[in-house]
Design a protein around this nucleic acid. Structure first.
Lengths: 345, 345
DNA sequence: GTGAAAGCGCTAACAT
DNA sequence: ATGTTAGCGCTTTCAC
């Protein structure tokens, strides 16, 4: 007696279809895959039989035969957090269009677990691997000489032969400053994340470049490096207002910092954006929209990062040669109320 | 010539291992799987050969033969958002221990996509399905009479024969009020999310029950239903302070509302928790920790929800009969600084 | 104790 | 135009 939750004792096979249609399995296969030379009437009969039986070809058997499974492994060290999710969704978009299913694996930042996952994925004969992370810092290659192509997204490999797709943090920093300049600000400061993060340093580098191009100094002389938290935003704003009271724009390392800054500015009686314009980074909507006023911010286009990475992977799987290196994806400015022209009281 | 990214022309098969060890494939199989009767020396020789060649048995072939693939499909309608991620990680935990890999599928709330994903997963011969969502509202069953077991997590099926695992929102509401009572509050109000959400209504029901048990009225008479936003928290607090100025505790429908409330209270000169205690819901750390003061909140134990759901699925896959129905997982109180004893100025 | 052979479900090459 | 057969990689009888 079948288990209650498995009403069908055995899945429908192509034999069943062939038998119902009164043809051989070979003919049924051709009919269903539109290959070979068959009478239209036969084709229809087989297709109808398949429909009637609810036939779905066994992907395992197909994979075993063809060597292609139409699956890829997605290995993340971010526990599918705030950054890897959008990347993942973008990737799924591109892969889903190619009828590819995705195995998800979370390494919890543990190299042992990572190795284990890669081994399992290879045993499942995935066609390729996508590696994502929380930080853009270079990380050790997931494995040399793997039998399948690998693309890194939102993280990069230390091996220059590997292909990595990451957001253009440097460009994002420059973009933010460019917007502040365009809206008439000239005394611009930067309250940044921790300097041990590559992303923080690169955003600062973008600030530097954009200001240098405009022939303006960075208010405060150097970026104020701290943490990625609101608490630091509040502190940083305090420090900044004390040292440079005539600042008229602050670019923050992320949206949380910007929120903290916004709070302190309000408490100190500085109006945003009338007195001081404010820009965040990440476009973390819950944060940026909850802030008063809602934050103008830099969006890293993480969906794009994932989509492009997946497209590279598909290309590599398809046999088109893929050259290693790092590809950066441009950031996108999202303008809200925290920036705008200066207005005197 | 092999493609540069596929250094191995062909993966290592058990034939290669057998050949290197100087035995037949059947013997090699037995040696590697610890089955049959073999001389220890033979066993060792085969294992050594496998190690040397880096042999990994082809999971497709195994699945084809055994009818078990050790894979499950995870179908979400939440785009892997804030709620389904923890569920997913909990599930991965339980499944990973069972050596099971997970296919992730995002339906984007589209029934067509959902059907398509289910079909694909069945074609891949997954051993079971896990369905997750963003809301606890009942949803149509993902498919009647599927050939594999299905468990719903963080969402529930309208079919009472299906098994669903969801957080105990009602208990969470009661838990919050219980904590407020225990810390000496008696004039408790509830600023809730939108009443169209089952979760909002259930949390309110928990509030109701806990207050009734204590013989106390709900300040304001009814919960103040609104939105899940900070903006609503600010508005709601305004309204509440106007109508019930002597409130001494506010339980909020989620952490965002609580943050909004906290801001308004601070601006109105009410100290938290000295004058008014505040509790949120969700334990969304970035929100709860960024708030001033950091929020006491109710954690839905989403990891547990996912883990339990996955364990039920494993049980069902293992053939143990699983009865339908809804299982609720208790919430957990996370105490931070926004609650504590009253203190007069 | 070990080897040979069948077969999981499917497709592709070869017969008819 | 259709049927037959071999074989993808593996496990499992069944001979020896």
């Amino acid at each position: 007696m079948p288990h209650p939750s498995s009403p069908e004792v055995r899945a429908v096979t192509i034999r069943d279809v062939a038998s119902l249609a009164g043809v051989s399995v070979g003919t049924a296969s051709k009919a269903l895959n539109g290959r070979g030379k068959l009478r239209q009437e036969t084709r229809d009969r087989v297709v109808e039989a398949a429909r009637q039986l609810g036939f779905r070809p066994n992907a395992l058997a197909r994979g075993l035969l063809s060597g292609r499974t139409f699956t890829v492994g997605l290995v993340t060290s971010d526990s599918f957090g705030r950054f890897s999710i959008p990347v993942m969704l973008g990737a799924e978009d591109a892969l889903g269009a190619g009828q590819i299913s995705v195995f998800m694996c979370d390494t919890r930042d543990d190299p042992i677990r990572e190795r284990h996952h890669v081994q399992t994925l290879l045993a499942r004969r995935v066609d390729g691997l996508l590696v994502t992370g929380r930080r853009t810092e270079p990380r050790p290659s997931i494995g040399a000489d793997l039998p399948v192509p690998v693309v890194y997204a939102m993280t990069q490999s230390t091996d220059p032969g590997d292909l990595s797709v990451i957001p253009d943090d440097e460009g994002g920093g420059a973009l933010a400053v460019g917007h502040l300049l365009a809206t008439g600000r000239s005394r611009i400061a930067h309250i940044a994340g921790p300097s041990r993060f590559l992303a923080a340093r690169q955003r600062a580098a973008g600030v530097h470049r954009a200001l240098a191009d405009a022939g303006l100094p960075l208010v405060g002389g150097e970026p104020l490096y701290g943490e990625w938290t609101e608490e630091w935003g509040r502190q940083g704003a305090d420090i900044l207002l004390r040292v440079e009271p005539d600042v008229d724009a602050i670019f923050c390392g992320n949206d949380q910092i910007a929120r903290g800054v916004a709070e302190t500015l309000r408490e100190r009686g500085r109006r945003v954006p009338d007195d001081i314009a404010l820009i965040g980074f990440d476009n973390w909507e819950a944060m940026a929209l909850g802030s008063r006023p809602p934050l103008t911010t830099v969006d890293m286009s993480l969906g794009e990062v994932g989509r492009i990475a997946a497209e590279h992977l598909l290309a590599a799987i398809g046999g088109r040669p893929v050259t290693g290196g790092v590809q950066t994806i441009p950031c996108r400015l999202v303008v809200r109320e925290s920036t705008g022209p200066r207005r005197d009281a």
